[in-house]
Design a protein around this nucleic acid. Structure first.
Lengths: 131, 131
DNA sequence: CTGTCAATTGAACAGTCGATCAAGTGTTCC
DNA sequence: GGAACACTTGATCGACTGTTCAATTGACAG
């Protein structure tokens, strides 16, 4: 019987399997920034809310039962990573998801995290558009 | 000419547009946990490395020029969120991406963050498998 | 121009996170 | 069994993050 140790991890193997940096460090840092911004439950809730359509800060704060300032700060973080759009409308400023890519990321993660238990029907307009 | 204020954000509108919680709070928290784990550049680097195939901790540490313990701690965070798989092989413990879903999330974010500048060819085996 | 509504900003404080070190577990080889 | 290897764990500590409060900006109505 042959040795059954190290079929994939012998020292010489480590040398042989030189791995190249596939992705530029800058890209990794930008992606990490996006994930970090989404990696906070209150902020992620906010994104799912925006996934249903644009809202102004006041409306969001009312829906979440939170302070205006708190919501504004959360939106600032999301905006710094380019995850939300912003446009003024009279006295109000309307926020929304920045683009389809953000909606996809959101949709994929939520679908996975809720393992089919969620009703994402209202997200329909934002679902990944394949062909 | 009608007033052009508040076409989408009048007070009565706020009341009318009651938004339902589409996603269970638990799902949001799990998704946030996943994003948080991925929201750190060193950990995200680690995931892209594992995207090229399984590695043992020693190999990873050598590739990253980091301490064994540091790598182990990073892997622990990723493991707590179910992002990586682990199997023992002789003296070594091999880590890999947990499933296709993690690979998809990773791939999508990196593709977006590098805006076509990256060479993701070696990720081919992990690319989103549509139909 | 003044007051008011909508939202942002800066500062401060508490809570959380990540790298490191030292000590521990589990596995193989002799 | 015991030494050596591969990795994990717990504790510590500095750095970062999120919320809150107070003060500020910007837009609009009168």
């Amino acid at each position: 019987m042959p040795k059954l140790t190290d079929p994939a991890c012998a020292p010489q193997d480590h040398l042989a399997r030189q791995r190249v940096a596939l992705v530029h460090q800058g890209a990794i840092e930008r992606a990490a920034g996006i994930f970090r911004a989404m990696g906070d439950a209150p902020r992620l809730r906010l994104l799912t809310l925006l996934g249903q359509g644009e809202s102004c800060v006041t409306e969001i704060a009312a829906a979440e039962g939170e302070d205006l300032s708190t919501i504004s700060q959360r939106l600032r973080v999301l905006r710094n990573e380019g995850l939300v759009s912003r446009r003024r409308n009279g006295k109000h400023i309307l926020y929304g998801l920045a683009d389809q890519h953000v909606a996809d990321l959101l949709f994929n993660a939520l679908a996975h995290a809720s393992e089919g238990r969620a009703d994402l029907s209202r997200f329909a307009s934002l679902n990944p558009t394949k062909e």
